[in-house]
Simulated assay, not measured.
Amino acid sequence: MEAKIGIKQEHLAAVAQSLSKILADEFVLYTKTRKAHWNVVGIDFLAKHKFFEEQYGQLEQIVDDVAERIRSLGHYAPASLKEYLELTHLSEQSREKNNSAGFIKELLADHESILIHLRENINNYVTALHDAGTSDYITGLMETHEKMAWMLRAHLE
């Protein structure tokens, strides 16, 4: 059934497509953070194992929230690995060493990349697509990623 929420259908479709790309980025970052949690080694193993668990827990909630935002706009959320890999702008990476600093640098770069992407597109939701709700949602998402990035960055100082 079509969502009749005061936004033109073509705008809803554009917002859903944009959110689908964000969902793909979030899912790839979630998976990479899980990988860090499972595979980190070193003297700081336990602390980083728990730290990465906390981070992937936050990302798991973000993934669910973005998908539900897409659904609330009357569209279906992508939900396959193939779709995510086609939509994401992040890359999968294989590591030779599974130390905490390497994982943290890689995850930090992904958070920062997502932040730049969100920041570059936030005004478009309001001005071109007339969706203040999604713009507000993206603002909150940026704040979450800023804090997560800060937590990662603090481990590198």
Rank of each mutant, 00 (worst) to 15 (best):
G42P: 00
L118E: 07
V126Y: 09
L87M: 12
D25F: 02
R71K: 12
L90A: 11
I62D: 04
E146M: 14
D65P: 04
I114M: 13
E120R: 02
L59A: 05
I62T: 13
E60F: 15
E143T: 09
Y76D: 15
S18G: 05
P78S: 12
E146K: 08
I138V: 15
Y76M: 14
E2R: 13
S20H: 01
E96I: 08
L59T: 07
G133W: 03
D65H: 12
R153A: 14
H155K: 15
F27C: 07
H117D: 12
V28L: 12
V126T: 15
E26N: 13
L129E: 03
T88Y: 06
A14R: 09
M1A: 15
L29C: 10
V15S: 11
A77M: 06
A67W: 04
Y84H: 09
S135L: 08
Q9S: 13
E112H: 05
L90Y: 13
S135V: 01
E106P: 00
A16F: 00
I7S: 04
V63G: 12
I104W: 03
N124Y: 06
Q55E: 10
S100F: 00
E10P: 08
D131H: 12
R71D: 09
D25T: 03
L73C: 06
R34C: 07
W38V: 05
H155C: 14
L19W: 10
E26S: 08
H11P: 00
A47I: 03
Q17C: 02
R119Y: 00
Y137W: 14
L19P: 04
H49S: 00
A3G: 02
S20K: 04
A3V: 14
K48A: 13
A13V: 07
I114P: 04
R119A: 11
A132T: 15
F51T: 11
I138M: 09
F27H: 12
I43G: 03
E96L: 11
A16D: 06
